[in-house]
Computed example of a mutant assay.
Amino acid sequence: MKYTTEITIDLQRDEFIKILDNPDNMQHWMRGLLGYNMISGEPGQEGSTMNMKFKRGKGEMEMVETILKRNMPDEFHATYDTKGVHNIQRNYFKEENGKTRWISESEFQFSGFGMKLIGFLMPGAFKKQSMKYAQDFKNFAEKGISVTNS
């Protein structure tokens, strides 16, 4: 399953990147993030891996981020792996009239019958979640509104 989301953030690209690139800010826009820890490599750099733990409903979910490409301020690509799901994210950042357009291409690969069924029956839920993260980032970056207060 593949889809693209876009959002415009009312910040110049260098300010946008400073906020996005600071791992301490993740808790303010990644709803449900309980914590993260480095597994290998230099934080934020190509080839590094990080474990991320999220609260999901009544349970928890862990995923591993692997940075594939870091060409800031233009693009950032990573994979996110959790049980039954391999997610490839290609993010592009365009400076437009003092604002930043964030284009995110998502590709989900499912394994196991259960995850394949969810991907088939509920593809809109994945895109909706991606847009929610982008909107939460926008609210934090522009207005200082953190999801930790909700």
Score class of each variant (00 low, 15 high):
136 D>H: 06
80 Y>G: 05
55 K>C: 02
145 I>E: 13
148 T>G: 02
110 F>R: 00
57 G>Q: 09
88 I>L: 15
38 M>L: 13
23 P>H: 07
56 R>V: 15
15 E>S: 11
47 G>S: 07
26 M>W: 12
96 E>K: 08
86 H>I: 12
66 T>K: 13
111 S>T: 15
101 R>A: 01
147 V>A: 03
51 N>C: 09
68 L>E: 14
97 N>G: 11
150 S>W: 10
100 T>H: 01
117 L>N: 04
34 L>E: 10
121 L>D: 11
98 G>Q: 07
105 E>S: 07
84 G>Q: 08
19 I>S: 02
134 A>V: 09
129 Q>Y: 02
67 I>G: 03
22 N>M: 04
92 Y>L: 07
133 Y>D: 13
57 G>W: 08
76 F>R: 01
102 W>E: 00
72 M>N: 04
65 E>L: 11
87 N>I: 15
111 S>E: 15
2 K>T: 14
12 Q>P: 14
11 L>R: 10
117 L>V: 15
22 N>S: 09
44 G>R: 05
31 R>T: 13
83 K>L: 15
99 K>R: 10
63 M>Y: 12
49 T>D: 05
82 T>D: 06
119 G>M: 05
29 W>H: 03
63 M>T: 13
93 F>I: 01
33 L>T: 01
101 R>D: 00
114 G>E: 13
142 E>L: 07
150 S>E: 13
50 M>L: 14
79 T>V: 07
86 H>P: 00
31 R>A: 10
15 E>F: 07
34 L>S: 09
141 A>G: 08
134 A>Y: 00
122 M>F: 15
15 E>A: 08
37 N>I: 08
133 Y>E: 11
104 S>M: 14
18 K>D: 10
104 S>E: 12
119 G>P: 06
77 H>S: 08
64 V>H: 06
141 A>P: 02
58 K>C: 04
103 I>G: 01
96 E>H: 06
8 T>S: 02
141 A>S: 12
108 F>M: 11
56 R>K: 14
83 K>S: 15
99 K>W: 08
36 Y>V: 02
1 M>P: 05
91 N>G: 04
80 Y>I: 10
26 M>N: 07
123 P>K: 01
50 M>P: 00
63 M>D: 14
36 Y>W: 14
141 A>D: 09
139 N>I: 03
37 N>V: 14
140 F>W: 15
72 M>L: 15
93 F>L: 02
73 P>M: 06
97 N>C: 06
45 Q>E: 14
9 I>C: 03
29 W>R: 00
22 N>Q: 08
105 E>L: 10
112 G>P: 08
60 E>A: 10
50 M>F: 04
15 E>K: 13
74 D>H: 11
61 M>Y: 05
40 S>F: 10
8 T>F: 03
55 K>P: 01
24 D>H: 04
91 N>A: 04
112 G>S: 05
146 S>A: 04
73 P>Y: 05
75 E>M: 14
16 F>K: 00
67 I>W: 06
29 W>I: 00
136 D>K: 05
115 M>Y: 04
126 F>E: 01
8 T>A: 01
53 K>C: 10
65 E>C: 10
64 V>I: 15
14 D>T: 08
114 G>C: 12
38 M>H: 09
71 N>G: 01
62 E>G: 09
107 E>S: 07
110 F>T: 04
68 L>P: 00
149 N>Y: 11
135 Q>H: 07
8 T>G: 00
52 M>N: 11
40 S>L: 09
58 K>E: 15
40 S>P: 05
119 G>D: 07
30 M>Q: 09
24 D>E: 15
121 L>M: 14
